[in-house]
Amino acid sequence: MSDEFYETTYAEPGDLAKVREFVRTRAAHLGLPETRTELLTLAVSELATNTLQHTTGGGVVRLWADDGRVVCDVIDGGPVRTLGRGMPAADALRGRGLAIVERVCDEVGVDASEDGTRVRLALAVGRHEAGHPG
């Protein structure tokens, strides 16, 4: 199924609302329930925000269905992110974005692809107890 996917791009903060609407619409179309769609939308928005804050360019979002999951790649020119840092203290100023992504998605992986640094997210379409890492 991964030969069929939806794609959008972003380059500035004003694009973030468009990216969220893209994820909401496409993930719902692929069968992700509304509450899970909102969590995926949040995760993608956090990653795109990260791109815009820490790199000089924009990024690409690709989304598709695979084996009972909705899978989403966020690709940018930033460094490979370090996962597993945990949620900062409630009164900390920074460092929440990636921690939120890791908490709301069933699967999160990072690697260097030929297009750039790729963060791959997945949420199960069905029961939401499926496969949370850690």
Partner: peptide, 12 residues
Amino acid sequence: GAVAAVLDLTGV
């Protein structure tokens, strides 16, 4: 909704 979820996850 999702706003409450973010506040909950972050402890805020």
